[in-house]
Amino acid sequence: MITKKILLSFPKVATGKPMAMELIKTYNLDFSILKALIDDNIKGTLLLEIRGEANDLNAGIVFLRENQIGVKEVQSMVVVDEKKCISCGACTAVCAVNALEMDENWSLIHHEDKCLECMLCVKACPMRAIHAVM
């Protein structure tokens, strides 16, 4: 049994199809919806934490892609734009779990697996270099 966090993007053609039911019924997958932004007939994004056997999980992802759904594995809900980041450290002040911390050279490092998705770093970043993935 493995767990992955995946971000699904539904183009207009794929909205309205019962994809989630297929994942449960056909591929024996279990999931929690972490975040959903869906506009019927326009587009949608869905962040899932998905659990199942490795084979089933891979097959489920192939099925989604065959239906024009973008599938991206994500570790963390936030992305740090390294081009914008100046390593000031303001985000580390609010990161309670040290998912964002300074290394020995005072350069920012992002431990994506530690993130608890409080999203405070997005507000704390003076360069606006930290964005939510959706």
Partner: peptide
């Protein structure tokens, strides 16, 4: 109590 910088030592260097 955790301490964090607000100015960039990396760029200052």
């Amino acid at each position: 109590i955790k301490t964090s910088p607000m100015s960039s030592l990396k760029v200052a260097r």
